[in-house]
């Protein structure tokens, strides 16, 4: 009799705890979670702007810490939007770049104000450069993408 009480208690506890491990859905996008490198986006982004690589926008100091804009909105010019987009959609863009087409390429083409077929072809051709290794992060890819487009 006692054994059954005990067994049912243990079962109950196990079932309750197995549910607690669900993935946290409040994060700032899957891409940022999985692909973000250790290189510290803020420092890099600030370095980038002083190099003059981004041709349109300056970055806000607060930007880049979480992968989301602090007010939850898409804003800024081409550079900032591209980086914000890639920080949150890097895994999808990686797929689309490998194939040469897809929703993220159409979106980036809009942000970059270019033809999506051209961007698709360039992304596919330069995939190995854009994603140098498995640790490529959004900042790397953004910088390289701008090089690819300008080439």
């Amino acid at each position: 009799m006692k054994k059954i009480y005990l067994a049912s208690l243990i079962c109950g506890a196990m079932m309750l705890s197995s549910n607690a491990g669900a993935v946290d859905s409040t994060g700032c996008g899957l891409g940022s979670m999985a692909w973000r490198g250790q290189s510290g986006p803020v420092a890099q982004v600030l370095a980038v702007t002083t190099n003059g690589l981004f041709f349109t926008q300056t970055f806000g100091i607060t930007f880049g810490t979480s992968g989301c804009d602090p007010n939850g909105r898409i804003s800024g010019g081409t550079g900032r939007m591209t980086l914000a987009f890639l920080e949150n959609n890097l895994e999808q863009y990686a797929m689309d770049a490998a194939a040469g087409h897809g929703e993220t390429i159409e979106t980036l083409a809009g942000i970059l104000n270019m033809d999506s077929e051209t961007l698709g072809a360039k992304s596919k051709q330069n995939f190995a450069f854009l994603f140098e290794n498995e640790n490529a992060d959004a900042v790397d890819v953004t910088l390289r993408l701008f090089q690819v487009i300008e080439a």
Binding site: L30, M95, A97, A98, A99, F131, E134
Partner: peptide, 30 residues
């Protein structure tokens, strides 16, 4: 590739393996 993304979110894959496998799938696809 999509399935590897699914596995990672389902916590069936560690980050290291996830990255390696994703990269393998995409470089082959490319």
């Amino acid at each position: 590739y999509q399935y590897i993304q699914y596995q990672y979110v389902a916590k069936d894959l560690e980050l290291g393996d996830y990255r390696k496998r994703s990269f393998k799938a995409l470089t082959t696809r490319n």
